[in-house]
Design a binder for these strands. Structure first.
Lengths: 359, 359
DNA sequence: ATGAAAGCGCTAACAA
DNA sequence: TTGTTAGCGCTTTCAT
């Protein structure tokens, strides 16, 4: 029996004092499993952690004891000694003025969870808004509370990626970093997608194609604009200043940008918008100006969140695999955790042009 | 000096071996802070935990040492002894066939994070889909890994709420539970909101008002239907079977339901849809049938995720305060954790009718 | 007000 | 293959 006496009923909380309802028992420990199985703690630990150096009999009795007791390892205790936390953190770092639509984020999250569900890892969510929260997140990450970081950064001049990487914590980003050190990331094929979009417009006879571009300090903005430019130039077209107006991914900015494009080029016959919300804005602006879509002007957007499907007419969009992006971010992160010093990796997911009534 | 010798450079990992880049130092411990401050671990612990029984001098030197070392308490170690985890978990339990739109969830999440950010609590996210994942979540929660649970359950016959409550883990739900024990929850005023919607339709001269209701095993479905029924009956109208068709919150179901309503009552002049996606579906069905909105038929939806704002014409909707819902869920949960045996609490958030072109 | 000491539940050498 | 042992970093009596 050894000194296990005190374990039988710690501090006298045996349920009676709680009144009705099931008594919230203390969770069983390794020690209790070991006793029931008639082996030592170490052996139980080996079983739990899947060590091969365990006899079949020991394995059987331990497994039975675990099942009987409903034993689940205490993460805190384990983490204390292994210095692993079995925890990943997803940080969404936004400016106080949020620009991105939530559905995008929700889809990434869904993918992350899908990838995580067969593992024993848990996901901590940190929505960092503004400097104070950013620093808190950084402190949290920097102090060994997580095994790795998934980062969705919503602005280009973010110090987080470098700070996290510098702290030696494995990191994977959604989207390419424009400056600073090379960091693992997953991204959509924004250049190719934009090229396809413009290619489609060209193929359907459009020649005066304008674009509502994204912010130039974010890779999404830069890449989608590049795809547009390349495609237009390849067709001998003009991708000069007047055909490009920058927005900030919001519907309002898409609308305003399109108004300017119309003022500059009343004869435009197509608009490629670098986000779905901006495409929606473009649609509004065109209608307000009395233009008909798609007969008069065609609109193609980049599908950040499937929102564009609800436009009327539904917008032709470059479909990204947002959920897959979340999944792959996790895979990359796990690989990075397993091999901290490997080469930086990137993964570019293909996009697909979904043609609808609008173009 | 005691036995602190071994701490100076544990296992010789002093950075040189890592090659270039900043050496991933071990995070400073209480012990180190204590030594630097010239006090004992216990005193540092008191300072960190805001105990009053500390002399001003001690407090000052400890505070300085903490700042100098950038000390952050190790959660695992703390949790091991306190049996608190300072962790809440948000469980989204969906059927394999997801019904709810993501934006709703994203908004709740945003509110949860907002409420959490001034605290030291962290949020773990569990997306439980199907039985296997549900049981895993239950095991996780039941074994003391979290201090409390926020639960968004997407179907009516869910065993999770009762299982969690039975395990004695503090729980707050989004939405009212139709059966089983009384559980703390936050909900929108679905009855009142639906009543307002129908009231508006009546006020604008509509008399033949149909509804696309939600699933009858969920409080959202039941309550919105009840609000509709009450309002229609109060006006002396007919809320009988033919005017009510049940959908499952998806756009497709809204469309199908509306088609049936039109078949049954070609003379209907308004549709109240119990979700924004179903309202969108209703819009499509009406158009397909050659009806004009809102001249011919008015449409009002329940706004679960602001998606309806993108319809054309923009839909008149009952606006819920989804983000606030998340915030309040956290407040309720914290209150419950502080007072596990208090009376069950509920919080009904007011809704607001946002009138747009469609009705 | 402060310190000494005992452990929380677990893993990881090391012995056997 | 198994058991023994020594902590991981922290909070918390219990002395002082």
């Amino acid at each position: 029996m050894s000194g296990a006496v005190g374990l039988a009923d710690p501090s006298g909380t045996s349920g009676e004092s709680r009144g009705p309802g099931p008594a919230p028992r203390r969770a069983p420990t390794l020690e209790e499993v070991a006793e029931l199985a008639g082996v030592s703690r170490a052996t139980v630990s080996r079983v739990v952690n899947g060590s091969s150096r365990v006899s079949p009999e020991a394995l059987a009795s331990v497994t039975a004891a675990i099942a009987q007791l409903g034993y689940v390892p205490n993460r805190a205790a384990r983490s204390l000694v292994t210095r692993r936390t079995d925890t990943l953190v997803l940080i969404v770092h936004e400016r106080p003025d949020t620009v991105f639509s939530d559905p995008f984020f929700a889809s990434v999250l869904r993918g992350v969870n899908r990838a995580l569900s067969p593992t024993d890892l848990q996901l901590v969510l940190l929505q960092a808004q503004g400097e104070a929260q950013r620093d808190r997140a950084l402190r949290y990450v920097g102090n060994g509370h997580v095994d790795g970081v998934l980062l969705i950064s919503l602005h280009g001049d973010d110090i987080m990626p470098n700070a996290i990487a510098a702290a030696g914590v494995p990191l994977v980003m959604a989207g390419r970093l424009l400056t600073g050190r090379m960091v693992d990331y997953v991204d959509a094929d924004n250049v190719g997608g934009a090229r396809d979009a413009v290619g489609h417009l060209l193929a359907t006879g459009r020649r005066r194609i304008a674009t509502v571009a994204g912010p130039p300090d974010m890779s999404v903005g830069v890449d989608r604009l590049r795809g547009y430019t390349e495609a237009v130039r390849a067709a001998g077209g003009d991708a000069a200043a007047g055909w490009v107006v920058v927005g900030d991914f919001t519907e309002a900015s898409g609308q305003a940008a399109t108004e300017r494009l119309l003022a500059e080029h009343p004869d435009l016959d197509a608009v490629f918008a670098a986000s779905d919300l901006m495409a929606l804005g473009a649609l509004r602006a065109l209608r307000a100006a009395g233009r008909r879509v798609p007969d008069d002007v065609a609109v193609v957007g980049f599908d950040d969140a499937a929102l564009a499907a609800y436009a009327d007419p539904p917008l032709t969009t470059v479909r990204q695999q947002v959920e897959l992006m979340g999944q792959e971010m996790v895979q990359l992160l796990l690989a990075r955790i397993a091999d901290p010093d490997g080469e930086p990796r990137e993964l570019i997911l293909p996009t697909e042009l979904v043609i609808r009534a609008s173009a």
